[in-house]
Amino acid sequence: MDFEFIRAYAPLYASAAGLTLTIAFLGIFLSVVIGLLCSLVKIFKIPVLTTIVNGYIEISRNTPLLIQLFFLYFGLPKIGIVLSSETCGITGLAFLGGSYMAETFRTGIEQIPKIQTDSGLSLGMTGLQIFRFIILPQAIATSVPVFCANIIFLIKETSVFSAVALADLMFVAKDLIGIYYKTDEALFMLVISYLLILLPVSAFCTLLERRVRYAEFGNSDPVSGK
């Protein structure tokens, strides 16, 4: 292991990690927005839009991000839509993540039994109050674990961005292997960088899950008592 080499190229990895994080952040933010909109459309069953959203979710969930990126980056310029690597990455991530987030939000809200809404109504609560005090806390409690898993999944997916010429961590590692043949050092720093990014996220998610679990209904399923 050549530590001089590692010290010399650490800044390169740091800036690459910064780029990865920036794109991941923007992509995830957009996917949350898309996810919210799509889940609202599905929950309120808005006629034509529901079909479109369903189609979008199926397409995005059943194709690999890499192929989506290739299509965006190499395919679209042929019909005059030229996207930069960064835009491509963000669009791809948002396209992929949107459907995952939509499904997460929708199942979170829909799995709350109808009886709870009815009980709320019979107690004289308004629709908004029911949503605010009954549905939302429980929906958040059950969605947070999946939501966190989605975020980690999306950050991991950013590793394919090197394929559309984005100078992210994979790109830097591949470059160093190709130029200096320092395979060990390059791969070592690659693993460390991903650990530094993902371990805190994962730890934070575990913490968050534990925190929101308090809101679960009696912290158990009232029917089976499990």
């Binding site: 991991k156 590793s159 394919v160 590692a173 292997i177 690659l190 991903y194 650990l195 993902l198």
Partner: peptide
Amino acid sequence: RIMPQLVLLFLVYFG
């Protein structure tokens, strides 16, 4: 779960 599959691929393929 934490390592991207592509990183694992690189580790095995180059390592």
